[in-house]
Design a protein around this nucleic acid. Structure first.
Lengths: 153, 153
DNA sequence: AGCGTTATTGCAACGTGATGCAATAACCAC
DNA sequence: GTGGTTATTGCATCACGTTGCAATAACGCT
């Protein structure tokens, strides 16, 4: 029987990508890919582990985390750290973006290419440093919390 | 005998700061403050725990981490997350700064007020968001690693 | 100095990841 | 299909932090 089709999402090339590097296509990796396919936006590592366990209760964290790193090397996803330091993964080919997170209320916004441009440009100019926008999480105070903070002295 | 003097560093006011909020001045907190006094630049949480254990082998991590958060609320220090998500503390009153870290070689540079300005300004303008520079860690590729990467195709 | 309040401590357990190692199982060649 | 390589898995263990809870000990008051 032919291999089950990995639908859409441009995760298609993963099997070939692995094989091209002498890496292997295992049932565990298939489960992880299935979870990633069903994912939109961001997922934390433990969420991925949990969802894999729904597909296969024998899933162990070390396998998942190791595979996620392999997939990141393949360019299938990218990780970043949220404001609390926990890992978050973006599945490609979502548009590259970073995050803005309010320290006070916890709200989050995406930083798109345009929003990141002044930052990217300034570091490129000043020291030739190329900012990885997808790994970028900027924390601070959002407009609403700022007003709230100054309103009550 | 008078309380041992907490030297320099503007950590002087800590005892009063605690008392003013109904908080207490304990031997454990004294040890942590002593470690922070001896610190220049950045320290990770576990480094602080280790150094406290040298002063008092009974030191437990939970006490240290809880105290660090109290001290952060008092404004004595600030935490950030390094590129790998681990916590790092800056002891004040060091100049507020963020970090630039190369994904490839691991080198780090400080982002000073001037370096952060384009970033801070752009988010303030676009959405009234006030960036917390001291919590900022930007990762990417430094100039040297960039050249190395493009040199070998 | 002694007493009552309640902030703080230490312990135990948990959550999120990383890592070393022996056993397993993909993959390739025949 | 069979067999040999070696990438991968699962397990055990560790590291860094966090949290709930009962016991302790600062602190303010008299």
């Amino acid at each position: 029987m032919t291999d089950e089709r990995l639908a859409g999402k441009s995760l298609d090339g993963v099997v070939d990508g692995l094989r091209a590097r002498g890496l292997r296509w295992t049932p565990q990796r298939r489960a992880i890919l299935r979870v990633l396919e069903a994912t939109s936006g961001h997922v934390t590592g433990s969420e991925i582990v949990d969802q894999c366990r729904q597909l296969d209760p024998m899933t162990t964290p070390s396998t998942v985390y190791r595979t996620l790193r392999v997939l990141e090397e393949l360019g299938v996803l990218q990780h970043a750290h949220a404001a609390d330091g926990r890992e978050e993964f973006h599945v490609r080919p979502a548009a590259e973006h970073g995050h803005l997170q309010c320290q006070s209320c916890g709200s989050r916004w995406e930083i798109d290419r345009a929003g990141a441009q002044p930052t990217v440009r300034s570091f490129r100019r000043r020291q030739g440093f190329e900012v990885d926008v997808s790994h970028l999480t900027i924390v601070g105070l959002c407009a609403a919390c700022r007003r709230a903070a100054t309103a009550t002295p």
